[in-house]
Nucleic acid binder design. Structure first.
Lengths: 200, 200
DNA sequence: TAGCTTCCATAACGACCGGTATATAATGGC
DNA sequence: GCCATTATATACCGGTCGTTATGGAAGCTA
């Protein structure tokens, strides 16, 4: 049962909207590059309100990362359900292009940004991001194993190698998107990858 | 003519060694994550000595980046001289694996690290790194155009797309190396890429 | 040794960092 | 109306950031 009558003074801002604004800041500047002043300004609230609603900067980031995965990485689940290894790869890459070059979102990938070198304060952030990636990568390994068993990957392919390969392309796309590559450039990259995709 | 008799007291440290130490710090923690305290401690000098010898933090980084390109990216020039497009790609990737997973150097790629999202103070750093990458990528486009003319790339390949593709793999390898991937994992990635490399 | 130049070490600068104490305003229950 | 509870706004905390002023030590030429 949901409590419909909170006791004290109601908050004057929408936590979901504030979190979405925080996500954009982290996505644009990175965890270390985003200051509390940047965050509160973008969220339209004061620092005490932020701390009361979200805990601290690190907790805010983890909630923003949850939102990012739910809203911006939904294509990952869709991709894993595609019927062939090739269509899985295509769905991954097309989804990544769409997310990373959206005209109304920051460029690049929040996860890739935060798996790079960083200062001591962000080490736990980096570790969390890397752990989340490992689990999704494991799911892709399982999917390609199935594809191999079903015969839509050649029997000689190294499934682990192919998974790292596809992830490398996705990560490289994120690097290029964050460096200002246009959607057209990334689409040519995807087309090239699909043109040489190993077929049975 | 080189001045062999500097007038005042000689400095007590070797600037080349100090710069190499600074490079390791930037490579490990990134420009923003590396504090002046980190740098001076690793370099074995005090802050005034650092400022006298290198200017400021940003100038120190640019000199470290020059050193990185000269010492750690020498394989790029070698790769571009290989006789076929395939051997160019292989030389690029093998060189990247060697540099990014060296047991005596930080993991990952200094350039990729600094082309990601960052705070305002590092925007000019990011812009410089991206510009340097653009020029090396242009050289690879030219090399693949030649390969296409010489017939060791199929006539239907999109040279720009293939260049972005190879760079994406290199960048993805850097992301994975920085995230703790082993040399063996990256070598499987390289082997997979070479196994599906487009042949004439 | 005198005089000049350059380097080193300490300490401090203002600005900003993430995080809070305090006081006031707005609600619900009684 | 009054109290308990929660949110807001201002101002501030100690610490660290990149950077630099200051004073003395070390080497050179003469």
């Amino acid at each position: 049962m949901v409590s419909v009558a909170p006791k004290g003074r109601p908050r004057e801002f929408c936590t979901d909207r504030a979190l979405a604004a925080a996500l954009r800041v982290f996505w644009t500047k990175g965890y270390e590059g985003a200051s509390m002043a940047d965050l509160t300004e973008a969220m339209g609230i004061t620092k005490p309100s932020l701390y009361a609603a979200f805990g601290n900067k690190e907790a805010l980031f983890h909630k923003a990362l949850d939102l990012y995965e739910a809203e911006k990485l939904a294509y990952v689940g869709v991709a894993l359900e595609q019927p062939t290894a090739r269509s899985v790869a295509e769905c991954f890459m097309r989804g990544a292009v769409a997310t990373q070059t959206s005209s109304c979102d920051p460029k690049g990938c929040l996860g890739v940004i935060h798996s790079m070198a960083c200062g001591a304060e962000a080490e736990s952030i980096k570790a969390d991001v890397i752990a989340r990636r490992a689990s999704s990568q494991a799911a892709l390994v399982a999917r390609f194993e199935r594809a191999k068993a079903e015969g839509d990957l050649p029997p000689h392919v190294d499934v682990g190698g192919l998974t790292s390969y596809l992830y490398a392309i996705l990560q490289g796309m994120a690097v290029q998107a964050g460096s200002g590559a246009s959607r057209e450039e990334l689409e040519r990259l995807v087309d090239t990858t699909l043109a040489i995709w190993p077929s049975a």
